[in-house]
């Protein structure tokens, strides 16, 4: 049995496999949140967007038979939530954090409402690319069974990073996030830029949700997302609003999330719930270690309410 020969290697391998799988939704949500926050607004509602995207993606895949259409539908649904957030926030005296919480509860409620009939049936899942076919070891093969969305996420992270640095649009978004008066002086509509950034961010979060229901864990349940959308917000802070760092942070969070199942696969079931809490603990410790009240964070958008 190969499985026994691998011995302790099973755990890091399972964690690597898990990191790749679990990190994908983190990656998409954090890129979306990164874009939104770069424009100077924070959207805490991405948790709700993620869950609603997961439901929409699954339902669409079930009805049309095409999981890729599901991903698209999830993205569109997510962008609607983002647009709603962006629209409401531009009204005077409205707090973007509170709106985020409200949309989180509203989005989850709507997802559970419409998702009830889809808990049982099986929808077609996203295919994955077997990059590990060279290996005989089943664990390596399953670890390298990579979903195309993961690769899309990597490309997207690089593209966003490049765009922020080198394009006109990137500059406009960064300027709006750093100083609304400057953007206004340059003749750009701050509200419009933020609206578009939040909408695009919602789209990405919706796609992240579709990954949850269509790839891993790969079914629609009400307990599908447990705070990934919110952890992504912390992840963006940890990544210092840098899309490339978001990718690294997402992998780290994915690995932490995979710790419980990885240990379970080698028979360590004691403390399963404790290890399941690992991503939350990690997030908290990372925030404690990386945030300081004394200095402002490098790369933080100046207009962001959360860092003020």
């Amino acid at each position: 049995m190969i499985e026994t020969e691998l011995g302790w290697l099973t755990v890091p391998l399972a964690m690597l496999a898990g990191a790749i799988r679990v990190s994908t939704p983190f990656l998409f949500v954090s890129l979306g949140e990164c874009l939104t926050e770069k424009s100077g607004r924070i959207n805490l509602g991405l948790e709700g967007t993620l869950v609603f995207g997961a439901m929409t993606g699954y339902a669409t895949s079930y009805h049309t038979g095409s999981p890729w259409l599901g991903v698209l539908a999830a993205g569109i649904a997510g962008s609607l939530f983002g647009a709603l957030h962006g629209f409401i926030c531009k009204l005077p005296k409205v707090n973007d954090i509170a709106i985020g919480i409200a949309l989180m509860l509203f989005g989850t409620g709507l997802a559970f409402f419409f998702g009830k009939p889809y808990i049982q049936p099986q929808a077609p899942r996203l295919p994955s690319i077997g990059l590990g076919s060279w290996s005989d070891v089943p664990q390596i093969r399953s670890a390298l069974d990579i979903n195309p969305l993961f690769l899309v996420g990597i490309v997207l992270a690089i593209a966003l990073w490049w765009a922020f640095k080198n394009t006109r649009w990137g500059l406009i978004v960064r300027m709006t996030g750093d100083s609304a008066p400057a953007a206004r002086a340059m003749g750009y509509s701050v509200d419009l830029v933020r609206f578009l950034a939040t909408t695009a961010g919602g789209f990405l979060a919706g796609v992240g949700g579709a990954f949850l229901s269509l790839s891993y864990p790969g079914a629609w349940t009400e307990g599908l997302s447990s705070g990934q959308g919110l952890m992504a917000v912390a992840l963006v802070i940890f990544a210092r609003w840098n899309p490339l760092a978001c990718f690294g942070a997402a992998l780290l969070f994915g690995a932490a999330g995979a710790l419980g199942p990885a240990l379970q696969s080698v028979g360590i079931t004691q403390g399963y719930y404790f290890f399941n809490a690992a991503p939350y603990l990690l997030t908290l410790f990372i925030m404690i270690a990386s945030v300081s009240p004394k200095r402002s964070l490098k790369g933080a958008p100046g207009e962001l309410s959360i860092t003020k």
């Binding site: 805490l44 919480i101 705070g227 997030t283 404690i288 945030v291």
Partner: peptide, 14 residues
């Protein structure tokens, strides 16, 4: 530590 209380409290919830 300057940690956002909204995120911290929800993480602690989980």
């Amino acid at each position: 530590r300057g940690i956002n209380e909204t995120i911290a409290s929800l993480l602690l919830s989980y």
